[in-house]
Amino acid sequence: METTTKTIANNEPLASTNGMKPKFELLGKKATRFGFGEGLVTLGERYENVVVLGGDITGSVMTSYFQEKFPDRFFSAGIMEATATLVATGLALSGKVPFFASYGAFAACRNTDMLRISVCYNDANVKIGGGHAGISVGPDGATHQVLEEIAITRTLPNMTLVVPCDFTEAKKATVAIGEFVGPAYIRFGRTDTPMFTKEDTPFELGRAQVFREGNDVAICACGPMVWEALVAAEELAKEGIDARVINVSTIKPLDNATLIAAAKECGAIVSAEEHQITAGLGGAIAELLVKEYPVPMEFVGVHDTFGGSGEPDELMALFGLTSVTIIEAAKKVVKRKS
């Protein structure tokens, strides 16, 4: 019988290039939630003790794929996110690998006490999928647009937090957290967003990947903002600014070595996330760099406000979650380098 006891790689120093110089192109558009759904099926096929709890919105967060394929290992939990998380804890303490997915607004925010005491304090092998993340949920409005759960989940001891950048990476990340031992949270979105990574694009839990080389400024992004960062970098190149783009898909634990190297080699950082700028990805990077290697930094994200109804692209533009804002931030931070 196969035994998997993977642990997150230690933060060994990395060559800043990771040995690759990918040139990304737009391969289409597909929501990361479909990657999560397909990843669950892959796990179900590989491991008999992977089980899934449904939270009524199974067709939205794509746990329905698993339900169709493995009805005996799918358990409907109704609309009770807190109890689904507790039941998942009981399943994990009995040797199962339970996934529970709901909208991040409920899976993380409503559930914080359950995640803190029952999942993380128990160090239970529970996997939480937080869907419909960020403002790109669109017309559902502020109640369903969660912009705070990176902050919440990354403060919990024992928790691993991953925010995949596109459909393909979401699939890989889902399989990775299933095979990893310990509490984990994966954040994914509802709206179709650019697909640009491939099966052979490097992905490893606990590692940030350099997606574009450059030494004038490092743009550190997660989720759909990674594509915006790549677009921004091409525009910046036209103006003579050579931007490095780093996909920080694992936010906890943070890949310290890659980020410190970026600060040293680029001398300026821009963070970009579909999340509050307080205590999110930018906050995590700032906490690291202010101690290890302080450099000027700018934050792209939502500025202490709630979202609202609208089409996803309208909202992303309104809240400044586009390549345009990243370009402005990059120019500003490069000017701040003395």
Partner: peptide
Amino acid sequence: ETSTGSLGQGMGIAVGMALAD
């Protein structure tokens, strides 16, 4: 078997154990 103390949570965990079994 499990940490408890935040009231109401142990019951849900017990339910999860029973479901697993």
